[in-house]
Design a binder for these strands. Sequence first.
DNA 1: GTAAATCATACACATTTACTATGAATAGGG
DNA 2: CCCTATTCATAGTAAATGTGTATGATTTAC
Lengths: 144, 144
Amino acid sequence: MKISTKGRYALRLMLDLATYNTGEPVSIKDISKRQDISEKYLEQIIAILNKAGFVRSIRGAQGGYMLKKAPSEYTVGMILRQTEGDLAPVSCVGADSEECERRSQCVTVRIYEQLNNAINGVVDHITLADMMEWQAEKVEQYVI
Amino acid sequence: MKISTKGRYALRLMLDLATYNTGEPVSIKDISKRQDISEKYLEQIIAILNKAGFVRSIRGAQGGYMLKKAPSEYTVGMILRQTEGDLAPVSCVGADSEECERRSQCVTVRIYEQLNNAINGVVDHITLADMMEWQAEKVEQYVI
DNA sequence: GTAAATCATACACATTTACTATGAATAGGG
DNA sequence: CCCTATTCATAGTAAATGTGTATGATTTAC
């Protein structure tokens, strides 16, 4: 029941892009330094986000990445699902649920449905914009 | 973010013990047949539940296992935590949370705390007794 | 005494995780 | 046009985890 580094890094990566959104592309190297995550691993993760259409890539020197849409348009759920796959706690519930021959007699599935709803309820209503606000609040704490 | 077979089987195992709680010990062999789970794997899982004090074991011929307490005394969370470990979605939140040097600057942790609360809110409220009721409802559906 | 059961470990194999490595393709600046 | 900084694509790899099997010892009802 753990979220892997891939998903966690993807969140930090997207938040980094949202934070350093100046109009200039942000390079993997810069993100790597700020977030202290291997460049090569970040490349792999951002490739997923790129294919999903979440970021725009600019190749060549002075290249990098930018968010395609506003931070408020990206939920945590969207990002985690791309990198982690379906967030349902078992394969027999959720969006791409698989068949199970025990289904008709199975009562535990009700637990998993409730869990699935609870998880989605959290991740589908937090956006990158929310996370940016949290960051701003953190800074205030130090300033005051 | 998946619950492993070990945890899922543990739930079915405990529910089976709750359902067939006649005063006589229930053998692994019987549970194995009813739940269609390997005897040997069940032995391993119930060993965990036994060490946790959730079941009482009676050795020797005609032996088996019984719940130590009433079904309403066992939450899904108790059972899953024994078999799956802490249910927190990352190691830096929850009961046995580990240190992280990025903690002070990290905002994603707020997501994980909310997730953790949501997950616990579900699993700590459902008991074996609830699951037995769900089973009874299922039977009614067929009878009517 | 024997068969039926639990108990304790060790082993095995597949999958997933978390990266690292290699090199090709692209493009800006001199 | 060349050099360098970057993304892009794919393969490899070591460790951990998941999902069981296998072997055999121990206990106890009959």
